[in-house]
């Protein structure tokens, strides 16, 4: 054992310990909201201490926005500027949905450490730690979306829906990602290693984002693929976000997205909590 640090403080003694014990008053247990917010605060502290996480959520979106705009812009839409009006909302969805899998990874990393045991022995609202992860991630989603918006505006993205439409689009995207995160918390609890969480997430997210209306209009696809795109939740989300940002009424897509989000929370939220309690 190497003592890397020496504390010049006074060593704990029976007196110092008794003093902190005897003054103790047990406050009433916190409500569901304040417990969840405390865990959300923890997630923010983690971002503060491990800022490399922020690199992932900013560098990746910037890269794919630039890449796809210039790679496909000329070929698919005649001009990069024109393509950007179509691509940007989709790319925003793609990268935010992609970053949502970090939720599962942070859950999984925590389980392998003892701190998770401490949380599970606290007399708090049971889903609070899970909601906390997701609250922290919603910050990342919002940050990621805003970064892409900024890059888009620089490159010439001029949405017809105006500021309000764009904000509504981002809000919908963040809300849907909250719902989707429950799939990842479940996965994080279910799978043994962080690596396999990532592998499985990719296996779901790659087809879900690429086989969609994000990069190209599905009308150019073969019929069987159009059927898949039609069933793809992400495609409906993209249509809804795109509609909000371009100022078109897309009530049916909005409804679809809302219903899917609700179902995701109901199903995977329940499964997450069942696994969390059983672990």
């Amino acid at each position: 054992m190497t003592a890397t640090t020496t504390a010049p403080d006074r060593d704990p003694t029976a007196e110092t310990i008794s003093a902190v014990l005897s003054r103790e008053v047990r406050p009433p247990r916190p409500g569901a909201l304040s417990a969840s917010l405390a865990f959300g605060w923890r997630a923010m502290l983690k971002i503060k201490h491990v800022p490399s996480q922020l690199f992932d959520i900013t560098a990746f979106p910037i890269m794919i926005t630039l890449m796809f705009t210039y790679l496909f812009g000329g070929a698919l839409a005649g001009s990069t500027r024109e393509y950007l009006q179509f691509l940007l909302p989709g790319i925003m969805v793609m990268s935010v949905v992609m970053t949502s899998m970090y939720t599962g990874m942070s859950v999984n990393i925590d389980i392998s450490k003892g701190v998770f045991d401490r949380f599970r022995t606290l007399p708090i609202w049971r889903p609070a730690p899970m909601v906390g992860y997701i609250l922290g991630d919603m910050f990342r989603y919002t940050a990621g979306a805003l970064v892409i918006l900024a890059v888009g505006l620089i490159l010439g993205f001029r949405p017809d829906g105006g500021a309000l439409g764009v904000l509504a689009g981002i809000a919908l995207l963040v809300a849907f990602s909250f719902a989707l995160s429950w799939l990842w918390t479940m996965l994080g609890l279910l799978v043994r290693t962080e690596r396999s969480v990532m592998g499985i997430s990719m296996l779901v997210l790659f087809p879900a984002t690429f086989l969609s209306n994000i990069l190209v209009d599905p009308k150019t696809m073969p019929g069987w693929l159009q059927v898949f795109v039609d069933l793809n939740l992400i495609a409906h989300l993209v249509a809804a976000v795109r509609g909000l940002m371009s100022g078109d009424a897309v009530v049916d897509e909005l409804l679809w997205t809302a219903v899917c989000g609700g179902v995701l929370i109901a199903v995977f939220g329940t499964l997450t909590m069942r696994l969390y309690n059983r672990k």
């Binding site: 047990r26 406050p27 009433p28 247990r29 916190p30 304040s34 417990a35 405390a38 865990f39 605060w41 923890r42 502290l45 401490r118 949380f119 606290l122 708090i124 609070a128």
Partner: peptide, 9 residues
């Protein structure tokens, strides 16, 4: 964090 989770303001 733990104090908050145990109900301290």
């Amino acid at each position: 964090l733990l104090s908050r989770l145990l109900g301290y303001r």
